[in-house]
């Protein structure tokens, strides 16, 4: 059974329809990427999965169980972590408190501590700055914190919304390295990227979203070679 199934979902902001019959599936262990230009509906797709938005029609299923109407805190408990667009770290709290809150749904103190170590292993910068107030971190460090924080709930599925946006190229490479590493340690990932070339390099499969519709899907390799994708998203 697929880990996640999004089935013909329509999502609205008030009267504005942002998603039109979006369907996608994610299997255990995959990295799946969702590419598309600004305003295509990528963020809305993630918000619909994590419960920040609710589908007006269609279903979101996690291992066959419909989670489409659940509040976000319930969705987290069922194993979906979401590092949202714009990082959204708790700016007036320390790095450690941010990570602590990431583990809010857990009770196993020992496991939480070892996962904090794991996050510090991925991002040594965060260890150095663990007592610093998050709002004073650089953009790249905040992104690391946002990813680390989402990992602290030990999600089965991790949703990443443009983790490389606005970062220096060297940091972008670091972030993509870590994404691969997280995945190889057993976390399934749904990755949104403007940087389609990079995303398709790490992903197994991808979907292309245009004005709220999935217009293309396939293996990362096939998408990289698709003339439409090349023209629209890879600048070739």
């Amino acid at each position: 059974m697929a880990l996640l199934e999004v089935e013909t979902v329509d999502t609205y902001y008030g009267r504005v329809q942002a998603l039109r019959g979006v369907s996608l599936t994610i299997d255990d262990g995959e990295i799946v990427t969702l590419i598309g230009s600004n305003g295509a509906g990528k963020t809305t797709t993630l918000r619909t999965i994590s419960g920040l938005a609710h589908p007006a029609r269609g279903h979101v299923r996690l291992r066959g169980l419909d989670i489409g109407g659940l509040a976000p805190d319930r969705v987290v408990m069922r194993g979906i972590g979401h590092a949202p667009e714009g990082r959204r770290v708790f700016a007036r709290m320390s790095v450690r408190d941010n990570l602590f809150l990431g583990a809010y749904v857990r009770k196993d103190a020992a496991g939480i501590r070892s996962d904090e170590e794991r996050v510090f292993g991925f991002f040594p910068r965060l260890r150095e700055r663990r007592n610093q107030i998050a709002g004073t971190l650089s953009g790249g460090e905040q992104q690391m914190l946002a990813i680390g924080r989402a990992l602290m709930s030990r999600p089965k599925l991790l949703l990443l919304d443009e983790p490389s946006l606005g970062l220096a190229p060297i940091l972008v490479d670091t972030i993509f390295q870590v994404i691969k590493e997280i995945n190889s340690q057993g976390t399934t990932i749904l990755l949104i990227e403007q940087n389609a070339a990079k995303a398709l390099q790490v992903a197994n499969r991808g979907y292309v979203l245009e004005t709220g519709r999935i217009v293309q899907e396939g293996s990362a390799k096939a998408l990289l070679e698709s003339p439409d994708v090349q023209r629209a998203y890879l600048g070739i």
Partner: peptide, 20 residues
């Protein structure tokens, strides 16, 4: 801490699993 998180960013707090 959950209360402070909710005050700072309600949606982000929800994504932590906090029942706002």
């Amino acid at each position: 801490k959950a209360m402070r998180a909710t005050a700072q960013d309600r949606e982000a707090a929800q994504l932590m699993g906090i029942d706002i």
